[in-house]
Design a protein around this nucleic acid. Structure first.
Lengths: 161, 161
DNA sequence: ATGCCTGCAAAAGATTTGCATTTCA
DNA sequence: TGAAATGCAAATCTTTTGCAGGCAT
C-alpha cells in the first residue's frame, strides 16, 4: 500500500527540514522537488528511484523524470528524510523513509520477501562498544538479517521434509 | 597487498571443494576457472570482478575476460570460496574470500577506507535471538559498521576542532 | 565427438551528465 | 535577470547474454 502524497504533521516537519537545508545551501525551493519529497515520505516500504518516478507520474506530475529524482536523492538524504536500505548483490538500490521514525534494522524473508523492521537497544549498544574497541567513532551501520519466515519454513518443511 | 595466485593448504582444500561441486554438477574442470578461484582465494581484502580480471591479466593470463569472471562468481559462491561483501549505495559489488575463514563482520572508516574485520559471538547470538523472536530461521546477515577510525578522528579534530 | 567454457562484442539495466528550457528568488 | 532545477537524450558503468571457436571428457 502506497500512501503516495498524503500529508501528516510529521511530513510537514520533514519538509521544513528540507526547506531549511535548501535555504542553507542557497538552493531554490522547487515544486517538483517537494513533490518528490512528499512521495518519498509517503511511500510505504522500500522504494527505488524508478518507483518514486512512477508514482509521481501516476499522481499527476506528468513528467517526473527519473533523472530529476536521482538528482534530488542526495539532498533528501542529507536532510534526513530518507536513507538507503541495505541491498544485496545485483539488487537495485532502494531507499526508505528515515525522518520521524525510530531507528530500526531489517529482517527479510529470502523466499517471500516479507520485511520485518526490528529495533534492539542491546544490539545498538553492542555495536557502539565494538566500534569503540577498535577506536572507531560510529556514524552509521548497515544491518540486515536474512532468513526464512515462519510461513515459508512451514511450507518448506511440508514439501521437502 | 595482493597475495595473487599463491598457494596454501587451505587454498587446496577450497579448490577441492570447487572441483567437487563441478563434478556434482557435471560441469567441466577448466583451467581458467581454477585460476580465477586461486586469484579470488589469494586476494587480500575485498575485490570487484574487475579487480580479479586485472590481477589475472597482470599475472600471465592474457585474456582473463571480466565476462568469464562474472560467469564463475556464482559457482565460487556456491562452493563457499567467496561471499559478497556489503556494499553501500552506488558502490560496485565486492566479494571476499569465505573459505577457511571464521565468520566476521566489517568496520569501515568512511574517511580513509580502512577495513577492520571483527567477530562478536555475543552479536551473533543476539541476532539469532532476534530472528527467532520473529519466527525467522536465520540464513545469513549483512552487517557493516561505518564510522571514523582513530587516525581520521584525530586528524579531523586537529583541523576542524 | 559432444557439450561446457572462453573471449569478444553487443545488449541490458541503473545512474550520471550535457544542454536547452523553465522556474524560482 | 541570474542561478538553480527540469526534462530529455546521450553517455557511463556494471553486469548479462549471444555467438563462434577452443578445450575437457
Amino acid at each position: 500500500m502506497v500512501r503516495a502524497e498524503q500529508n501528516s504533521d510529521d511530513d510537514e516537519r520533514a519538509l521544513s527540514r528540507l526547506r531549511e537545508l535548501v535555504r542553507k545551501k542557497e538552493l531554490k525551493n522547487s515544486q517538483v522537488r517537494e513533490r518528490i519529497a512528499r512521495c518519498a515520505l509517503g511511500y510505504e516500504g522500500h522504494f527505488t528511484v524508478e518507483d518514486l518516478a512512477r508514482v509521481l507520474r501516476a499522481g499527476g506530475l506528468r513528467n517526473a523524470h527519473p533523472a530529476t529524482v536521482y538528482r534530488s536523492i542526495p539532498l533528501l538524504m542529507e536532510a534526513g528524510l530518507i536513507q538507503p536500505a541495505p541491498a544485496g548483490p545485483g539488487e537495485t538500490q532502494r531507499y526508505e523513509r528515515a525522518f520521524g521514525r525510530d531507528h530500526h534494522d531489517h529482517l527479510v524473508c529470502t523466499r517471500c520477501g516479507q520485511l520485518v523492521e526490528f529495533h534492539s537497544p542491546t544490539l545498538e549498544l553492542l555495536q557502539e562498544e565494538i566500534a569503540k574497541n577498535y577506536g572507531f567513532c560510529l556514524e552509521s551501520h548497515l544491518h540486515e538479517l536474512r532468513g526464512t519466515c515462519s510461513s515459508c519454513s512451514r511450507a518448506d518443511g511440508a514439501s521437502a521434509g
